Computed example of a mutant assay.
Amino acid sequence: MNNYGKRIFLKAALGGVVSLATAALWASSAAAGKAFAVVKSDAEWRKILSPLAYRVLRKEYTEPPFSSPLNDEKRKGNFVCAGCGQKLFNALTKYESGTGWPSFWRPIRGAIGTKADYGLHLPRTEVHCSRCGGHIGHVFDDGPKPTGKRYCMNGAAMRFEPI
């Protein structure tokens, strides 16, 4: 682990307990030479997030399908990270995938990061906010043109900002 990764772990240890998933994400990000602009302790995240948003963003939980009001959101605007407010997806890239989660065919440039996820013993690609490292969902190769991608996101990990 490089010095940046060691500083993050030290800051986390001094500021509160972090989840293993968050620690692993920080370590992989630090090892890749990436730094999250927003870093908070576990206690700080719990204060600013709803219980469900905390479980999704910080513990990599998946909300039940068809449970998020954002699944039916059709207005012009942007879907932003519920943790740090970074714009993640423009509403123009949202489509109805039939999966029960808000789905998009393209993120806003630079807004997300990805990593391999073997949590279900199947290879998947996890999507996280590039600014705070919060877990947002997964991306699959069964989406519509022009990208062929389906960014299947947890509504609890986002807020909608109409324009």
Rank of each mutant, 00 (worst) to 15 (best):
K6G: 00
R7N: 09
F9Y: 07
L10H: 12
K11D: 05
A12Q: 14
A12D: 10
A13V: 03
G15A: 05
G15T: 13
G15N: 10
V18R: 11
V18N: 08
V18D: 05
V18A: 05
L20E: 12
A21T: 15
A24I: 10
L25I: 02
W26T: 03
W26C: 07
A27Y: 04
A27H: 12
S28I: 08
S28N: 14
A30D: 13
A31H: 08
A31T: 12
A32I: 10
G33I: 13
G33A: 05
G33W: 07
A35R: 15
F36W: 07
F36S: 05
A37Y: 01
V38Q: 05
K40F: 02
K40G: 04
K40E: 10
S41P: 09
S41G: 13
S41V: 11
E44S: 06
E44L: 07
E44Y: 02
W45E: 10
W45N: 09
R46K: 15
R46W: 02
R46Y: 02
K47N: 10
I48L: 11
I48K: 13
L49W: 05
L49C: 09
P51A: 08
P51V: 07
L52S: 06
L52A: 07
A53E: 03
R55M: 05
R55I: 00
V56M: 06
L57I: 15
K59A: 00
K59H: 12
K59Q: 14
T62G: 03
T62H: 01
T62M: 04
E63C: 03
E63F: 00
E63R: 09
P64C: 04
P64S: 12
P64D: 11
P65Y: 01
S67Q: 06
S68R: 11
P69F: 01
L70K: 11
L70P: 06
N71G: 01
N71H: 06
N71V: 13
D72P: 04
D72M: 04
E73N: 04
K74P: 02
R75G: 01
R75T: 05
